[in-house]
Structures are given as structure tokens and as C-alpha cells.
Nucleic acid binder design. Structure first.
Length: 304
DNA sequence: GCGACAG
DNA sequence: ATCTTGTCGC
């Protein structure tokens, strides 16, 4: 799903003499969570695509930027200072759309039925780690495989690819799935895969690590540097970890490797139990970030 | 109640 | 994630 292109086609629907807002476009994409992504996408890429980006403004009718103001005035839109006059009368929100994000959410929930949250792996030899970095729409992904017991480096691979989906909270999978799928082609499957993001500690219990685990059919664990949902149960904390609770259910752990100030958040992806996910994450931590992920991150940075 | 929200 | 320099501390 090329969401950038889908967004561009929505923007093209705004007629001259009318304006729309980041939020209305996000709703037309299917989720108001996409508001930030809409703004960032138009700000960053409007130069490289022929769309009337200047007709998209803030929800309050305020205009940021001289260039946008000038272009709107050329279309006879009355502006006083930074505010559009009678802006509510010219706001366009009657988009023709199929709400692609709603469709993706449904697919996410269908796949979630295949999720297994028990230890369902036979061996534990090779631990893989995947990380992706970006410069504009250019994505670099790296895979690092290490021996679970000796921590010896076993394999690495990096690839480059164009991204067709912006970052939207809770839809991270759809940004990174294409490049990670490509990255994992023709690779000896590891016993288990570490991913940069959440597993079941996700509003719909199906974050990046869970989604990729199911799609690739590989046991997986999510390692996140920030919380997406839930709270850390500090009253149940042990020396270096505490359970992560979301809607009354345990969905992962906050882990402080080697007494670090800021924890990492560990959650089962697929075919791994809660206790096992914590144990493996802890065992792979030489620094704050588990070693296969840390090495993968360094590789993607070097590739740019 | 409202808003924010992994990377 | 990315934009970015020096700097405080083990």
C-alpha cells in the first residue's frame, strides 16, 4: 500500500478556492492518528510532486509560511494576517476515499488470530536482529545474526529500498514490513528474531514484532526504547525489571539492563512467552540495547 | 474528559 | 526516525 501516493491523490481533490486541514486528510486516510504524518509528508515532499499542498492548513484556519499564503491569495482566498476569513465556509472535507488505514487495521486484526504467545521454538541457537533507518523516503535495513550462547557474530546483511508509507503510531508495521520482508529473503531463519518496536504491548496487541513474527513465521520479541501504551507496574518491580500492564493485562516488561537510567520495553512478538521474552532480551544485552539490534542499528547508520 | 502514542 | 556540538562522567 503506497500511502504517500494515496495521500497525494486526496490532496489533488481539494478544488481551487477551497482549503482542507491535516486532520481532515488524516480522517480521509482512515485514522486521525495520521495527522502528524500528513503534515510531515506534505512539508517534506511537496516539492517533488505536483499537488496543491498549499490548500492544506492547520485545523484552526491559521497559515504557516509566506509561500503558502501567497499561493492561496492567488486563488482569491481572503486572508487577514495568518488567518483565513470565513474559513469554515471554504473548508473541504468531502473526500472520495476508501479509508485505507481502516482496511489495514482490519487486516492487522485478522492476522492477530494466528498469534501464539507460548514458547513454540525447538532450538535456541541463532538470535537475529533487524533495524531500519531513513533519510527521506530512502530506507536502509540491516540484519545481524549472533550465537545465543557465545554471542559470536554469525551473519550480517544490509539492503536499501524506497519507503511508501510514513510513520503513523500503531501502524509502524506497514512502514517497515516491505523492506524487512525483502531483507529476510534467502536468509537462514534464526531461532528467534529481535525487532525494534513493540510486540503485544500495542493498543491492539499486535505491534511490529508480533506482526512480523506471524508473517515470517519466526519466533520474535519486540524491543522498544519508548512506551506506546500501558504503564510500568513499579510496585511489582524486581531489581532490574518491572511488568508492563495494559488494560489490566501483563503485556511485557520494562527492563533496566546493567542499571541503565532509562529502561527498554520488552514484549513477546510471536511464539514466545512473557517470561522467556524477558530472559532472552536480558541475556543479549551487553549495553542498553540487545546486541543484535545494536549492531544492526550501527550498520544501517553506516550505510547512509 | 482529552490528548498523545513504537520508529 | 531525523535535525545536530559540545560536553559531562565512568
Amino acid at each position: 500500500m503506497d500511502l504517500y501516493n494515496y495521500l497525494y491523490n486526496l490532496v489533488k481533490q481539494i478544488p481551487p478556492g477551497r482549503v482542507s486541514t491535516y486532520t481532515h486528510l488524516a480522517l480521509a486516510l482512515g485514522d486521525k492518528r495520521a495527522k502528524r504524518a500528513v503534515k510531515e509528508t506534505l512539508d517534506a515532499f511537496h516539492d517533488s510532486t505536483p499537488i496543491p499542498w498549499h490548500r492544506v492548513i492547520e485545523d484552526n484556519g491559521k497559515i504557516e509560511g509566506k509561500k503558502k499564503k501567497h499561493l492561496l491569495q492567488q486563488e482569491n482566498i481572503p486572508i487577514h494576517k495568518t488567518a483565513i476569513q470565513k474559513y469554515k465556509e471554504i473548508v473541504f472535507h468531502d473526500f472520495t476515499t476508501t479509508y485505507p488505514l481502516k482496511t489495514l487495521r482490519k487486516k492487522q486484526l485478522l492476522l492477530q488470530r494466528f498469534l501464539i504467545l507460548k514458547d513454540a521454538f525447538t532450538t535456541l541457537d541463532i538470535i537475529g536482529g533487524v533495524d531500519v533507518s531513513y533519510q527521506g523516503r530512502d530506507a536502509h535495513a540491516a540484519y545481524v545474526a549472533m550465537d545465543y550462547h557465545t554471542h559470536a557474530l554469525v551473519a550480517t546483511k544490509t539492503i536499501q529500498m524506497k519507503t511508501d508509507f510514513p510513520y503513523i503510531p500503531t501502524y509502524l508495521t506497514y512502514r517497515e514490513l516491505p523492506i524487512i520482508k525483502h531483507l529476510m529473503k534467502n536468509i537462514t531463519p534464526p531461532s528467534l528474531l529481535l525487532l525494534d518496536g513493540h510486540g503485544i504491548s500495542h493498543p491492539h496487541h499486535f505491534g511490529l514484532a508480533s506482526h512480523l513474527g506471524v508473517v515470517l513465521d519466526i519466533p520474535s520479541i519486540g524491543i522498544a526504547k519508548n512506551l506506546l501504551c500501558g504503564t510500568v507496574s513499579l510496585q511489582n518491580a524486581k531489581h532490574d525489571f518491572a511488568p508492563l500492564i495494559h488494560q489490566g493485562k501483563k503485556v511485557g516488561w520494562a527492563l533496566w539492563p546493567h542499571g541503565t537510567q532509562k529502561p527498554i520495553f520488552v514484549s513477546p512478538g510471536h511464539k514466545v512467552s512473557l517470561p522467556t521474552s524477558l530472559g532472552i532480551a536480558k541475556k543479549m544485552c551487553q549495553y542498553r540495547i540487545p546486541e543484535p539490534l545494536r549492531k544492526a542499528h550501527l550498520l544501517t547508520q553506516k550505510k547512509k
